[in-house]
């Protein structure tokens, strides 16, 4: 299962949209990394007010990829719950008004398939349209869907995205669940932290993908998902994935991991690092994106820009330099909330 990536756009807590600068690190405030949103000049005020933040960011990141009236043959989005802030507003209204005199705006806006359907509306796109919501593998499953579509129709082009937002509701719930740090944690101290939890993050990343190699910036040559809480099982599965998918004589030049400062999750990243020899460079991204269920889409955006020679790896990302002479093969490994793991192999096109 593979596809070529032709365009990529990303709205994230870093300067990744418009004039891109990922050298200068934008840091977390109160353990949250909020996305730097553009002004969305293409949406009028009324349209903007009717969008949840997820929809706004998702549609905003998709727009540059749909310029020249390009109509992808499908729109595939991964998101955990999409408009959780709007969902939360509606849940609050239900309780506070005792299920009476409610307005439907937040209910409609909070539906997770609003991102893909809003993009379809903007693009007047009546083609395939699907929203994957499998928590920490929502994006990987969306990418697998896109890979199957490309396998079924190699000449077609698809819009693939990963979107999630920080909302008061999910931040509170996930903090109660132990997934965000309870003590203040600066971005530059994230990887030295010895406690549970990470920084909270959000973002929207969009790609146009197809089976066409010409003009592509990167190739996603393989993807796998693993469901296990056992470090040994996960290590074995990643090892098998690499030996099966990486052609003989090639090596992983860079391991890009979702290490996130959560002491409970660290053993999985450590196990993955142990699979690769000292020559492999290691870089991390969660101090840039924060932790969110579809953060691997941010990692794929970085990987495409690195193998495509569009961006250099900033110093603040590097954990181990290794022998980084050329950058042709990147392994992205990410795990979310222990139990869901995704691997993506990204190569030069």
């Amino acid at each position: 299962m593979m596809f070529y990536i032709h365009k990529a756009a990303c709205i994230s807590p870093q300067q990744t949209f418009g004039d891109i600068d990922i050298e200068q690190l934008h840091v977390a405030v109160d353990n949250k990394l909020y996305a730097i949103e553009p002004k969305y000049p293409h949406f009028n005020g009324n349209a903007l007010r009717r969008m949840s933040k997820s929809t706004r960011m998702g549609a905003g990141a998709a727009l540059p990829l749909l310029a020249d009236n390009d109509k992808p043959n499908g729109i595939i989005i991964g998101t955990q719950v999409s408009g959780m802030e709007e969902n939360g507003k509606f849940l609050n209204q239900i309780i506070e008004y005792n299920e009476d005199m409610l307005t439907p705006g937040s209910f409609v806006q909070g539906t997770p398939n609003t991102i893909s359907s809003q993009i379809a509306l903007i693009n007047n796109n009546k083609n395939y349209n699907l929203t994957h919501v499998h928590r920490g593998l929502a994006f990987e499953n969306a990418a697998l869907d896109a890979a199957m579509l490309v396998n079924e129709n190699p000449a077609h082009t698809y819009l693939l995205g990963g979107v999630d937002e920080i909302s008061a509701n999910n931040y509170t719930l996930d903090t109660l669940g132990g997934w965000f740090k309870k003590e203040p944690c600066p971005s530059d101290g994230l990887y030295n932290s010895t406690t549970a939890g990470s920084l909270s993050g959000e973002g929207a990343t969009m790609f146009t993908v197809s089976g066409n190699q010409a003009g592509a910036i990167a190739k996603l040559s393989a993807i796998t998902t693993i469901h296990s809480s056992d470090v040994a099982v996960v290590k074995e599965r990643i090892k098998n994935f690499i030996s099966k998918e990486l052609p003989d004589g090639k090596k992983i030049d860079l391991l890009l991991t979702g290490e996130n400062g959560d002491a409970r999750v660290f053993p999985f990243y450590q196990a993955c690092e142990e699979i690769l020899d000292d020559q492999t460079a290691i870089a991390r991204f969660k101090h840039m994106s924060g932790e969110y269920p579809t953060a691997s889409s941010f990692a794929l955006w970085l990987a495409c820009n690195f193998v495509g020679g569009i961006l250099n790896i900033p110093r603040h990302m590097i954990k181990r330099h290794g022998d980084l002479k050329s950058l042709k093969n990147i392994l992205v490994y990410n795990t979310h909330k222990v139990g869901q793991h995704g691997c993506m192999l990204v190569n030069v096109a």
């Binding site: 398939n113 929203t131 919501v133 499998h134 928590r135 469901h227």
Partner: peptide, 24 residues
């Protein structure tokens, strides 16, 4: 969230293949 339903079934039956949840 939505995924909690299938993650429970996946755990209970030790499903190791592709597991997915969709909401359209």
């Amino acid at each position: 969230d939505y995924a909690s339903v299938n993650l429970f079934i996946q755990n209970r039956y030790n499903i190791t293949g592709v597991v997915n949840t969709m909401n359209t």
